[in-house]
Structures are given as structure tokens and as C-alpha cells.
């Protein structure tokens, strides 16, 4: 199972780097959906091996909520001409942001080995931490609300990978609650995002007040 964990983990990392590369939102959302399915399959297999019903439920919830529902919901918020949904201007140049994302993976590795490795002892433990950093960086490097939301969900995905693998006995109430919260956030964000993206260029000019 350790091997599968590392493989899924590096798949996630490369998928995030792919998202960092892409400009069109549809591709980013599809990639996110794929990464959620990968985690769901991993949790399912893990649960089947450990005979842990919690993990199986969690896997089903992940697939339904993150793999299907949230991407579906976000896609519905797109305009009809989905190819128009793209990042107009990003904060960091794309090539730079890809390399920086890689840099954060390395930082995650170093941080993990400096702090937690001796206590947890799992070599692949740096992957979720790297994913957390990558998610934060995805949020910081883009201006588009949809991408920022996906960056947030990448962080949560990493958490599920981590929690599901290392602490399979974590109370299901908590994880269910987290998923419910996530649905809530996505619904609320759906309203706000659409309003924001329609006027993003206007907003940026009105940001003077938000400085300082």
C-alpha cells in the first residue's frame, strides 16, 4: 500500500503542476476531477485491504462530491462558450509558476524531513505537505476565482489522502462534516465567483482602498 500511496501522491503532484500550466479553466476543472477520482480509488483499495468501512464510505463520498458534483457545479457556472473561460492575467508568469510549484514540492520535502519524519517515519509523508504548499501557491499565483477555489480543494484533497492513509480510524463524523462544509463553500463561492468574474477588471481598478 505504501507504493500505491507514493504513486498516487506523485500523480497528484504532477496533476497540480499540470493545472499550474493550463490557462483554460475547463481543463483545470477536469484535471481536478481526475485527481479526486484517483484519491477515491486509492482510498477504496486501501479500505478494501484494511477492511475498514469508514474508508469505503469516505472513498464513495470523495468520488461523488469532489470527483463528480463539484466539478459539475463549477462547469455549470461557466459561460456557454467555455473556451472563453480563461485566465486573463496571472500574477506570476506561467513558466516561472511551474518552476516555483516544483520548488514548493522540494520545500515540502525538506520541511517534512526536518520536522516530522522522525516522528511519523513514513517516507512518502512529504507528499501531502508538498501538495498543501502547491495548493496555496496555486491560489496565490492566480487571480481567477475558479482557479483559487480549485487550489483550495487541492489542499483539502491532500488532506484526505493524508488522513485517509495515515489515520484511517479518524471519526467519520469529522470527515463527513468537512465534506458538507466543502459543498457549502462551493455553493456560496459559486454565487460570489460568478459576480466577481464578470467584473474582475473593474474590481482591480477599485482596489486602492484595499491597500494598507
Amino acid at each position: 500500500m505504501k507504493e500505491a500511496f507514493v504513486m498516487v501522491g506523485f500523480l497528484e503532484i504532477t496533476l497540480v503542476i499540470f493545472m499550474q500550466w493550463q490557462v483554460y479553466l475547463k481543463k483545470i476543472v477536469d484535471t481536478f476531477s481526475l485527481s479526486s477520482y484517483a484519491i477515491s480509488i486509492f482510498l477504496f483499495v486501501d479500505g478494501a485491504i484494511l477492511n475498514n468501512i469508514n474508508l469505503l464510505i469516505l472513498s464513495a463520498l470523495t468520488a461523488v462530491v469532489r470527483g463528480f458534483f463539484i466539478p459539475f457545479f463549477i462547469r455549470k457556472k461557466f459561460r456557454k462558450e467555455y473556451y472563453l473561460e480563461r485566465e486573463i492575467k496571472s500574477v506570476v508568469p506561467t513558466a516561472m509558476s511551474i518552476v516555483l510549484s516544483l520548488f514548493f514540492v522540494v520545500v515540502g520535502y525538506i520541511v517534512y524531513h526536518a520536522t516530522l519524519y522522525n516522528s511519523i517515519g513514513l517516507p512518502g509523508g512529504s507528499i501531502p505537505i508538498a501538495l498543501l504548499f502547491q495548493g496555496i501557491f496555486l491560489i496565490m499565483s492566480r487571480n481567477n476565482a475558479f482557479v483559487q477555489l480549485i487550489g483550495y480543494m487541492v489542499m483539502e484533497n491532500s488532506l484526505f489522502l493524508f488522513g485517509g492513509y495515515l489515520f484511517p480510524e479518524l471519526p467519520l463524523v469529522i470527515e463527513g462534516g468537512i465534506l458538507l462544509d466543502l459543498i457549502g463553500i462551493v455553493m456560496i463561492s459559486g454565487i460570489i465567483m460568478r459576480l466577481r468574474e464578470e467584473n474582475v477588471s473593474n474590481i482591480i481598478d477599485e482596489f486602492k482602498e484595499f491597500k494598507g
Binding site: I139, M155, I185, R196
Partner: peptide
């Protein structure tokens, strides 16, 4: 627009922060 932008920043920054605290809680649980 400014209030929507403020709301969006609120959602995203606070959610990110809370994910960090969730990781912390999982460590505590460990």
C-alpha cells in the same frame, strides 16, 4: 464589486487558513 471582492478574499483566505488548522488537528489526533 468591492464588497464581492472582499467576500471572495474572506472565503478563500479563511478557508486556506482553516485547512492548515485541520492538518494541525489531525496531528493532535495522532
Amino acid at each position: 464589486f468591492p464588497s464581492i471582492e472582499a467576500s471572495w478574499r474572506y472565503i478563500i483566505i479563511v478557508s486556506v487558513g482553516l485547512v492548515i488548522s485541520l492538518v494541525g488537528i489531525i496531528f493532535i489526533y495522532d
